[in-house]
Simulated scan of single mutants.
Amino acid sequence: MLKKLILIALFSCSAHALDSNIIEIMQYLQRDSDLIQRGFFLNKFDIVQEGIEKHKVDFNTLQKFNIDMFLDEKHINYSPIISSFLRNIKENRIALEKFLKDNDKIRAYEAFQQLDYNCMKCHALVRGW
């Protein structure tokens, strides 16, 4: 019985730690997006690039999580849709980098808007908007 209680306690702690970790990662991704946005508004593409580099690192960390662990029974069927949003975000970031490299700033900003839009679609789905 004691072993069972310890196992439950460990699982609860690790589930809480995972939950807080994903929240922290999401906060980092928000910071990264804010940096990119600010760089565009200020016409400072070094800030855009800094945001992109941070986004790569934080997004790679996010992708290490099994998103299904964070979905309740009501949302578990959304897993393939969420995976699609995640793929789109990565593709949008790659397009953003390509357009910046080509000095096509309008299309770079459009790619960033699509990246941001995919983030919000995922949040809307999970939050039931």
Rank of each mutant, 00 (worst) to 15 (best):
M1G: 08
M1V: 04
K4D: 14
L5E: 13
I6C: 04
L7W: 03
L7N: 06
L7Y: 04
L10M: 09
L10S: 05
L10N: 04
F11E: 00
S12P: 01
S14G: 02
S14K: 03
A15N: 12
A15G: 07
A15K: 15
H16Q: 13
D19F: 06
D19H: 12
S20P: 01
N21K: 14
I22D: 00
I23N: 02
E24Q: 09
E24H: 06
I25F: 01
I25P: 01
I25A: 02
I25V: 15
M26Y: 14
Q27R: 05
Y28W: 04
L29R: 00
D32L: 01
I36W: 00
Q37A: 06
Q37E: 09
R38D: 11
G39L: 05
F40L: 07
F40C: 04
F41H: 13
F41T: 02
L42G: 11
N43R: 13
N43L: 05
K44L: 10
K44Y: 14
D46Q: 14
I47W: 03
V48P: 00
E50S: 12
G51S: 05
I52N: 01
E53A: 13
K56V: 12
K56P: 02
K56A: 10
V57C: 05
V57D: 12
D58N: 13
D58Y: 01
F59M: 08
F59L: 10
F59P: 11
L62S: 02
L62C: 02
K64A: 09
K64E: 14
F65K: 03
F65N: 07
N66Q: 13
N66K: 09
I67C: 04
I67D: 06
I67N: 09
D68H: 13
D68R: 15
M69G: 04
M69L: 15
L71M: 08
L71D: 05
D72M: 11
H75Y: 13
H75F: 09
I76C: 05
N77S: 15
N77G: 15
N77W: 03
N77D: 12
S79K: 15
S79M: 07
S79E: 15
P80T: 01
P80K: 02
I81V: 12
S83L: 13
S83D: 15
S83Y: 15
L86A: 08
L86T: 07
R87W: 10
N88T: 06
N88Y: 06
I89E: 14
I89V: 06
K90Q: 15
K90R: 13
E91N: 15
N92A: 05
R93H: 08
R93G: 00
A95R: 07
K98S: 06
K98Q: 10
L100G: 08
L100C: 11
L100S: 04
L100A: 01
D102M: 08
D102S: 13
N103R: 05
D104T: 05
K105P: 02
R107Y: 11
A108L: 06
E110N: 12
E110F: 05
E110H: 03
E110T: 04
F112V: 09
Q114M: 12
N118V: 00
N118M: 00
M120Y: 03
M120G: 03
K121G: 00
C122S: 12
C122N: 07
C122Y: 02
H123D: 12
A124G: 12
A124S: 06
A124V: 04
A124E: 10
L125W: 10
R127L: 07
R127Y: 12
W129G: 10
